[in-house]
């Protein structure tokens, strides 16, 4: 079977976030990019586990610039078979989804995996958009995924609980915690990644449906009010009368 794993770059989780050009552009100065954790830890690693358990070919795809090839090589080092980069700025979720769906259309994937969201835009948009463009079912926020012949058996988060569901392939699955464990690439993988194919393709035209016009960072809090640990009545009184939250 053929699995496509969509990966996105994201600033390292310890990054301090700032903006430039009158707060219209993310300040990349000093930012270390990583593979978006949900894409790497859950989607990619689960795809590799499926490959190791049987017969699957794992392709990773990203929409981005040549600078993103570093994270793509890491995905290859972890174990993906080949990599596709659509050479374009991922302007918005729809533009990005059109690029990935367009590649998927001509390459007959059985399963398309994404992380449940990126840690930079938190929109949870691209998986659903790819599914709609391709007219595939979407199982979102899955925490378990098993192949059952031509079907998938999944566990997914629902509001206030968990659900076991089945669906026929082809399908799109967005992956959440629980699906797999993070893997660290070993030296053999890193060496092998250097010679694995990384194909660059031009984008197709797509409209931009949304745009970020500006950004801001939340105001920092005023100094903390320290309460005597022996006087919890005072804390309760402040929460009730001053903060008005209880």
């Amino acid at each position: 079977m053929k699995i496509l794993v969509c990966i996105s770059k994201a600033p390292d989780t310890t990054s301090k976030i700032a903006f430039t050009e009158q707060n219209t552009k993310f300040d990349e100065n000093g930012i270390q990019y990583i593979i978006n954790p949900y894409d790497e830890w859950y989607a990619l690693v689960r795809a590799l586990e499926i490959k190791e358990a049987g017969n699957a070919d794992v392709t990773i795809i990203t929409v981005g610039s040549a600078a993103d090839e570093a994270i793509m090589r890491k995905a290859l080092a972890i174990g993906a078979d080949n990599a596709i980069r659509i050479d374009a700025d991922p302007k918005d979720a729809y533009f990005t989804a059109v690029q990935i769906a367009n590649y998927a259309k001509t390459n007959a994937f059985d399963l398309i995996l994404t992380g449940k969201e990126t840690i930079n835009y938190n929109g949870s948009q691209v998986a659903g958009m790819i599914a709609e463009i391709l007219d595939f079912p979407l199982i979102s926020q899955a925490s378990k995924l098993d192949i059952n012949g031509s079907s998938l058996s999944l566990e997914r988060e629902i509001i206030g609980g968990l659900q076991v569901v089945e669906v026929a392939m082809p399908a799109v699955v967005s992956c959440a915690k629980g699906m797999a464990e993070q893997r660290i690439p070993n030296m053999r993988g890193i060496m092998a990644a250097r010679t694995k194919p990384l194909t660059v393709l031009p984008p197709v035209t797509a409209v931009e449906l949304t745009s970020f016009v500006s950004y801001s960072v939340p105001n920092s809090k005023s100094a903390v009010k320290l309460i005597d640990p022996m006087n919890m009545d005072e804390l309760v009184e402040l929460l009730h009368n001053e903060a008005k939250v209880i």
Binding site: A93, G123, A127, G128, E132, L209
Partner: peptide, 15 residues
């Protein structure tokens, strides 16, 4: 999170 992106594509409406 699962439905709004699909609807965005179907209606060509920004989300």
């Amino acid at each position: 999170k699962a439905v709004a992106p699909r609807l965005s594509v179907r209606l060509q409406a920004g989300l």
